[in-house]
């Protein structure tokens, strides 16, 4: 169990820094179409922001609430990714062939662009949730005693 940090400097800096980190993560996620970046890196940065809030404010603080909620979302990212693939199949094409996404008024190239954005969101959600989940697993209670006695 991680308790909140005592130092007021760390807390104030965290309160200022975490939103900036999250905004940068979203920027990297959606800028991946135009430059370096993308779903994986954006997801890791988003997850790192949540890990920072857990490390600074502790497990049960109200500021870590999002990280706690996120914990129950294992598999949502996978569902988004595979769901986009399934929508392509419903549209009459191959699995993950974004040109078959059924959106009226869009040419195939723009549909592919949209499909790339959606799958990148899926990857980002999956990676962020996994990072937070591993940190919560690593900091769970009573691991040490059990592993030594058992």
């Amino acid at each position: 169990m991680i308790r909140s940090h005592d130092s007021i400097i760390v807390q104030t800096l965290g309160r200022f820094l975490i939103p900036v980190v999250q905004m940068f993560g979203l920027y990297v996620l959606f800028f991946g179409q135009y430059g370096p970046g993308g779903g994986f890196v954006g997801g890791v940065i988003l997850g790192t922001g949540m890990i920072l809030s857990v490390l600074i404010f502790g497990h049960n603080a109200s500021r870590s609430r999002i990280a706690q909620r996120v914990l129950h979302g294992d598999g949502v990212g996978m569902l988004i990714y595979a769901g986009v693939g399934g929508l392509c199949m419903i549209g009459g094409g191959e699995f993950l062939n974004y040109a078959n996404l059924e959106i009226p008024g869009l040419e195939p190239a723009s549909r592919r662009s949209l499909g790339i954005v959606l799958t990148q969101i899926g990857v980002a959600v999956d990676v962020a949730v996994t990072a937070v989940s591993i940190v919560f697993s690593l900091s769970a209670e009573e691991i040490i005693e059990d592993s030594i006695n058992g």
Binding site: G38, G77, M78, F95, R112
Partner: peptide, 23 residues
């Protein structure tokens, strides 16, 4: 795919199934 970044286009469109398995 109207995506200026070729790396993203390869990862997420041409090789999309690979990326899904990585996820």
């Amino acid at each position: 795919s109207h995506t200026p970044n070729v790396v993203t286009s390869v990862l997420m469109d041409y090789r999309s199934l690979d990326t899904m398995i990585e996820t």
